[in-house]
Every structure is written in structure tokens, then in C-alpha cells.
């Protein structure tokens, strides 16, 4: 696990003498600081941790009143019931849609970021403005027509349809990030490759791509979280349970098959939806944080 430190500030701070840079005493002495912050951190982490632990209760114990803190007997009943109910299909849907979005958004962002950062072509300013405008106008306000368009293309109830929608969600941030990443690379590096006879595309692939990998990681992460967690579009653009992604199938479980809600199964479904995000965040948080805060510093 890497520490949560934006790459940019980490570099800036290591350049200054390590201790007491401000010359000010710590604003809170150690004991109250760790007591308060520790409690707060618990408040952020405990609900999810308890959710995961509780998913190993039996379905009956999960629905018991008052709730038990730890499972009296550890059981996989909720998981078995969930999979019996056909959850694999929805996990697969989520995986395919997310993988498709990550690949499409990263590839298109790299290409467009390269194009916008390194080339001068007619209409460039207008095209970049169009891409950026997607940041200003939310997708939620084009839902009615997006449905009609997808329906006409027979892309409702389709994983490809969702991939297209989510890719467009992720593109503005992706292109913005990749354009900045390419702009930060000295042009001399790829000029050398091009003088050696490489084309633009092969210069991009062999020389530039390894340098901008951190940027690509940020874009891929952002696309992952977008696609894995998105609810509204998936709710509207899929109407058959076999096509639902995880968040939407949970809404179905909430209504309850046959009118009765099985809490253990619903919340175990929430574990399926939450854990991949948390795992990936813990492993790759450096890129996530650097990407989100990078834009903030530059303004």
C-alpha cells in the first residue's frame, strides 16, 4: 500500500528541509490529534468493514433484531443465494462494460491528448472546446434523447451501448489529463525518434507512451470507477435483468423477489459492488490522487 501523497506535492516537499518547514508548532499535540482523527477515520472505514464482515452471517442472522456485531457462525449462505439468483451474469455484465470503458476511454484519450498537445491543425480550438463543453453540460440532462438515439441504434439492453455512454462520460477528463501529460514531455524526445524515421504513431507508441504511463493510469482508474458505479444510465438503458449491471440489479433485490426483501443477499450484493473499487483504490491510489489534484493546482 502506498501512502496517500500526491506525486506533485511529494516532489515539492522533498526539496525543502524535512522537519518543521513552517517553523510553527504542530497545531494540535499528539494525543488529542490522534484520538480525534483516529475516531473520524473509524467513522469512514467502519461501515464498509462491518458490511464485509456481516456478509458472512447467515441470512437469518443478518435479518436478526437487534443486530449482532460479529457473525455467531461464519457462513457463505448469502453468497450462495446471491449466485443462485444469477448474480454471476450481472457481475459479468459489470466486468465487461467496465473493461470496455477503460480500454476505449484510455485509448481515445491517449490519441486525442497526443493530437491536441502536439499538432497544429485547422479547427483544433473549436474541437477542443466541444470536448470541454461536455464537462459543463451534464449527461443527466440529455437522458431522454440519448435513450431515443440508443434505441434507434438497437443499443438499449446492450453492453456496447453502455460502454459508448460511459466512454463519453470519461473522455473530457481523460483528454484533458492526457493533453497535459503529453504537453509536459519535451518535444525533443519524439523529434529524435521521428528524425530516425519513425512515424507519429510509432513515436507515440514506442517513445512517448512509456513516459505518460502515470497519466494513462489516472484516466483508466477514473473510467473504471465511472463505469463500475454508474446507476442512472444503466437503470434507464437496460430493462432486462440479464443485462443489468451490479448497481441496478441491487435495486431489484431491494424490491425483493416475491415481495420479501432478503437483507443478507442485498447487502452481500453491495459487497460485490464496493470491494473491487476499494481494492483498486488501495493499490493505485497514488495515480488516482495525482490525477484528481493535478488539475486543481494548475487551475
Amino acid at each position: 500500500m502506498t501512502s496517500l501523497e500526491p506525486a506533485t506535492t511529494a516532489a515539492a516537499e522533498s526539496a525543502t528541509p524535512p522537519r518543521r518547514r513552517t517553523g510553527r508548532p504542530e497545531w494540535l499535540p499528539a494525543v488529542p490529534f490522534y484520538a480525534v482523527c483516529g475516531l473520524l477515520a473509524l467513522l469512514f472505514v467502519a461501515p464498509v468493514a462491518w458490511l464485509v464482515v456481516s456478509s458472512f452471517k447467515s441470512s437469518a442472522e443478518f435479518a436478526q433484531s437487534p443486530p449482532t456485531l460479529l457473525p455467531t457462525t461464519w457462513s457463505l449462505e448469502n453468497y450462495r443465494r446471491l449466485l443462485d439468483a444469477g448474480l454471476w451474469q450481472n457481475v459479468t455484465n459489470s466486468l465487461i462494460v467496465t473493461a470496455g470503458t477503460v480500454v476505449a476511454a484510455s485509448t481515445l484519450s491517449v490519441l486525442a491528448g497526443y493530437g491536441f498537445a502536439r499538432f497544429r491543425f485547422p479547427g483544433k480550438g473549436v474541437l477542443f472546446l466541444i470536448v470541454l463543453s461536455t464537462l459543463m453540460i451534464p449527461f443527466q440532462s440529455i437522458v431522454p434523447s440519448l435513450y431515443v438515439i440508443l434505441d434507434a441504434l438497437q443499443l438499449t439492453n446492450s453492453r456496447l451501448g453502455l460502454v459508448l455512454v460511459y466512454t463519453v462520460f470519461a473522455l473530457p477528463f481523460g483528454i484533458f489529463t492526457m493533453r497535459a501529460a503529453f504537453a509536459a514531455v519535451p518535444p525533443a524526445i519524439e523529434e529524435a525518434a521521428i528524425v530516425d524515421g519513425a512515424g507519429s504513431l510509432s513515436a507515440l507508441r514506442r517513445v512517448l507512451l512509456p513516459i505518460v504511463t502515470p497519466g494513462v493510469a489516472t484516466v483508466a482508474l477514473y473510467a473504471f470507477f465511472t463505469a463500475w458505479n454508474e446507476f442512472l444510465a444503466a437503470l434507464i438503458f437496460t430493462t432486462r435483468q440479464q443485462q443489468y449491471t451490479l448497481p441496478v440489479v441491487l435495486a431489484n433485490l431491494q424490491t425483493g423477489a416475491g415481495g420479501t426483501l432478503n437483507w443478507g443477499v442485498l447487502e452481500t450484493g453491495a459487497v460485490f459492488a464496493a470491494l473491487p473499487c476499494i481494492a483498486i483504490f488501495l493499490i493505485l491510489q497514488r495515480y488516482y490522487v495525482a490525477g484528481l489534484t493535478g488539475g486543481a493546482v494548475k487551475g
Binding site: 500500500m1 501512502s3 496517500l4 501523497e5 482523527c37 473520524l40 477515520a41 469512514f44 472505514v45 461501515p47 464498509v48 458490511l51 470507477f225 463500475w228 458505479n229 454508474e230 446507476f231 448497481p247 441496478v248 441491487l250 435495486a251 431491494q254 437483507w263 442485498l266 447487502e267 450484493g269 453491495a270 459492488a273 464496493a274 473499487c277 476499494i278 483498486i280 483504490f281 488501495l282 491510489q285 488516482y288 490522487v289
Partner: peptide, 23 residues
């Protein structure tokens, strides 16, 4: 570690967090 703890819920979906709250 504190920063990691505070940021962790950001990556969970709103729908997922809502089901958690419901429970």
C-alpha cells in the same frame, strides 16, 4: 493512513453507499 481512510468512500458508488445506509 488517515488520508486514505477519508478518501476511501469516494471510490464507492453512490448506489452502493445508499444500500449500505439503508441497512
Amino acid at each position: 493512513l488517515l488520508r486514505t481512510a477519508f478518501v476511501m468512500p469516494v471510490v464507492i458508488g453512490f448506489a452502493t453507499a445508499s444500500y449500505l445506509t439503508l441497512w
